[in-house]
């Protein structure tokens, strides 16, 4: 489903050119639960941005569902983000003035879904993450775990092919982290492909496969035992 072939990303700082990604080859199949690990500065965030269609590689090909999205223009990328990718961020990134329901409705607004259907699907998604009773609450009235659940509901509401979670438990306590990771596991069992970017190995353990990134290259590519069990 996801195929990166010798993806290079370089930035020029002044006259100097810095290669952040130095030829990444990565293949992720549909329904996989993959963790991308690596120390800070390894390029995993850049990798995530490219996979999330927020950025384009300097060279190399990125195929998403057999479409060469690395050649897409910005408008097409926006559509791919909207329809095929659900983002979950460390800082939740909920719009503070919208209540939970409205936040979950956002991706559907950009997908051109009618108001009534939007409300139905948003409340359905919130129900799925266990927040049926918090729909009218503003983000600052919710706990960190609840905020992240709203963000997950927002990520799944357009039925994306892929959920990209960037340190989803980074701002949560360990107990809440477990709940959130269990939610991801549940979604994965329902068939959603999940890519998790993290530097915590406990979190990465929830994934069936871990990809290590260091110095802009994929170092290690292993399938964990625990992931194997859940098959």
């Amino acid at each position: 489903m996801i195929r990166l072939q010798s993806v290079v990303k370089s930035y020029s700082i002044g006259k100097e050119q810095v290669d952040v990604l130095k030829g990444i080859d990565l293949h992720i199949k549909e329904g996989e639960f993959t963790a991308i690990m690596g120390p800070s500065g390894s390029g995993k965030s850049t990798l995530m941005n490219i996979v999330g269609c927020l950025d384009r590689p300097s060279s190399g090909d990125y195929y998403l569902n057999d479409h060469l999205v690395s050649q897409y223009d910005e408008k097409e990328l926006a559509q791919v983000r909207n329809r095929s990718i659900g983002f979950v961020f460390q800082q939740f990134q909920l719009l503070p003035r919208l209540n939970a329901l409205k936040n979950v409705e956002l991706p559907m607004i950009y997908a051109g879904v009618k108001k009534k259907e939007r409300e139905e699907r948003a409340s359905e998604a919130l129900h799925k993450v266990g927040l049926s009773d918090r729909m009218g609450h503003l983000p600052n009235e919710l706990s960190g775990g609840q905020k992240q659940r709203v963000a997950i509901a927002r990520a799944i509401v357009n039925n994306p092919d892929l959920i990209l979670a960037d340190e989803p438990t980074g701002a949560l306590d360990s107990k809440t982290s477990v709940q959130i990771m269990e939610l991801f596991t549940m979604l994965n069992q329902e068939g959603t492909t999940i890519i998790l970017v993290t530097h915590e190995s406990e979190v990465a353990e929830y994934a069936r496969r871990t990809v290590f990134v260091r110095d802009g290259m994929v170092m290690q590519n292993e399938t964990t035992v625990k992931g194997g069990e859940s098959l």
């Binding site: 927020l54 408008k75 559509q79 983002f87 909920l94």
Partner: peptide, 16 residues
């Protein structure tokens, strides 16, 4: 700025 980033990540085009 952050709101704009979030909206873009959720699929808003520059035009929108």
């Amino acid at each position: 700025t952050r709101e704009i980033g979030v909206r873009m990540s959720l699929g808003a085009t520059r035009g929108q």
